[in-house]
Simulated assay, not measured.
Amino acid sequence: MRYPQGGGLTAERRELRERLRFEAAAGFARGEDNAVIAHQLRVSVRSVQRWRRAWSVEGRDGLRSKGPASLPLLSDEQFAVLEYELDKGPAEHGWPDQKWTLPRIKTVIGRRFHISYTTKGVSVLLHRHGWSWQVPARRAVERDDAAVAVWVKDVWPQVKTPRRRSGPGWSSKTRQGSR
């Protein structure tokens, strides 16, 4: 089971799923049908079928959690070294500006640890350790808020394309025929 944040199940969620599997095992022992167990536990019938197959081969041990789906490639000690490298800044690693991007961090990981990550993998790694994307702390010195407000009020309505109307009489055929 995957989540938008990129991680798998947390330890608590794995324990919950394991308890569900053990409840299903009690239903198996009572001879209940897969569909009934799935309905009671609010899971898919397919999951119950898979659990029943594991239970019939290995018993209750076949339903135990096997731990996280994947372990991170960088250890906590290596991630601490990576944080030290990131604190040095992109210029220290050969980039002309002070912006860290996922591809740049991926390159630093490859150079420093000889480990290949995907860009998405770098994102997951950083989020797993509490990092998130950042917004600049200050606005550009040249910014003129009054000029921006005037532009939004006066210029933008003229530039913006009008919304297409819908409803009776607004189709292109009707408008062409009414001329």
Score class of each variant (00 low, 15 high):
residue 154 D to H: 06
residue 167 G to T: 02
residue 139 R to G: 09
residue 129 H to P: 01
residue 147 A to H: 07
residue 118 T to I: 04
residue 93 H to C: 08
residue 130 G to M: 00
residue 93 H to T: 04
residue 146 A to Q: 09
residue 142 E to I: 06
residue 104 R to N: 12
residue 77 E to G: 07
residue 165 R to H: 13
residue 155 V to S: 03
residue 92 E to Q: 04
residue 80 A to K: 05
residue 141 V to D: 09
residue 79 F to Y: 13
residue 156 W to P: 00
residue 90 P to R: 09
residue 108 V to T: 02
residue 168 P to S: 04
residue 130 G to I: 06
residue 144 D to A: 05
residue 143 R to Y: 10
residue 139 R to V: 12
residue 97 D to A: 06
residue 136 P to K: 12
residue 82 L to R: 03
residue 91 A to L: 15
residue 103 P to N: 05
residue 104 R to A: 00
residue 134 Q to P: 10
residue 158 Q to N: 11
residue 148 V to K: 04
residue 69 A to L: 12
residue 153 K to A: 15
residue 170 W to D: 11
residue 166 S to I: 05
residue 74 L to N: 01
residue 98 Q to A: 13
residue 143 R to E: 13
residue 133 W to S: 04
residue 94 G to L: 10
residue 143 R to S: 10
residue 71 L to H: 11
residue 164 R to Q: 12
residue 155 V to F: 07
residue 80 A to M: 02
residue 166 S to F: 13
residue 98 Q to P: 01
residue 144 D to V: 00
residue 117 Y to T: 03
residue 114 H to G: 02
residue 95 W to S: 00
residue 92 E to L: 05
residue 75 S to H: 13
residue 101 T to K: 10
residue 151 W to K: 15
residue 131 W to P: 02
residue 102 L to H: 02
residue 148 V to S: 08
residue 166 S to V: 08
residue 85 E to P: 03
residue 110 G to Q: 09
residue 149 A to M: 07
residue 129 H to R: 12
residue 163 R to G: 11
residue 99 K to G: 01
residue 116 S to V: 02
